[in-house]
Amino acid sequence: MILPAVDWAQPWLAPYRAHGQAVAQAASVHGSVAEALQGARPAHAPVPDFVQQHALPAGQAYEAHIFQTRTVPTRDNLHDFFNGLVWLAFPLAKRRLNELQAGEIARHGVAAVRGPLRDALTLFDENGAVLDAPPALWQALVARDWHTLFVERREWWAQARLLVFGHALLEKLAAPRKPITAHVLLAHEAAGAVAFDDARMAQALDPARLERKPFVPLPLLGVPGWWPGNEAASFYDDPQVFRPLPERGIHGR
């Protein structure tokens, strides 16, 4: 199975590059993403086994199956390829997300509508990112003050670290488009979690906080150094992408 081409030089792929290139090559040889990921799995790391998708029984909840069997059913596509790479790079954070998902499924079953915690867990797992940055950048991001964030304070991004965690987000970025937006968990709100630190990120995934959805939208191609076009200040003059903070109505509603 040959995966679509991935530009491994892109900055958002830095945490996944070492495993990613090798796994993609192995998948092209062996014809199986699961087999390629399994071959890259460290022998003594808290990473589950990767198995073919047909190992997931019909009607069985995916997250519950992973929790019960410590195996990850994997399809031969880019989405599951990136999911596997995140497991390899951040196994403790992925395990924590899975434990919380499985716990919610055990308590409430699988319904047509997820509860607030499962919604937040899925959002972060699929589309999340973690930002570790100076407070002035955090404040500008929360305020959706894009000019301050990306133009006035542009040089401050040299002190920031941004981790793209969500595997669906990584899949989207394989074909970069300006509107691609992450749901960012700010490191100062993550109990000291620091981007690229697996153990501290896992500890920060607190269900009481996550179900309040403490995420802030961030159009990723606006990040300095992540896309050539954003070197011009006019790049950010696009209200369809860089949207202002919604105004509160009367009585704050």
Rank of each mutant, 00 (worst) to 15 (best):
W156C: 10
N83W: 01
F242V: 01
L56Q: 04
H19S: 14
R41M: 08
H54P: 06
N98S: 07
H54L: 14
R41S: 05
E189L: 15
D76E: 13
T71H: 08
H251V: 11
H79L: 10
A202M: 07
W157D: 05
E104Q: 15
A160T: 13
L56C: 02
A182G: 10
N230D: 08
A133K: 05
K178H: 12
Q25E: 15
W12E: 00
F235V: 02
Y236P: 01
Q203G: 05
P244L: 03
L78V: 06
A102N: 03
G84V: 02
E104I: 00
L170V: 05
E126I: 07
A208G: 06
R144I: 04
V151N: 05
D198E: 08
P179A: 09
L149A: 01
A102T: 04
A24W: 07
G31H: 09
P91Y: 03
A174L: 00
L218M: 13
V223D: 06
Q25M: 13
H44M: 13
S32F: 06
W138I: 15
L149D: 04
L221W: 03
R144L: 08
A233R: 06
T69P: 05
F196D: 14
A160V: 13
H108T: 11
G192Q: 09
Q38P: 04
I66R: 01
E189D: 15
A232K: 10
A129K: 01
F215V: 04
W156F: 13
A133Q: 07
P116D: 10
A129N: 02
D145L: 07
H147A: 14
M1E: 12
L218G: 03
V142S: 14
A199W: 09
L85P: 02
P176E: 12
A43N: 10
A22W: 11
A195D: 06
G222K: 07
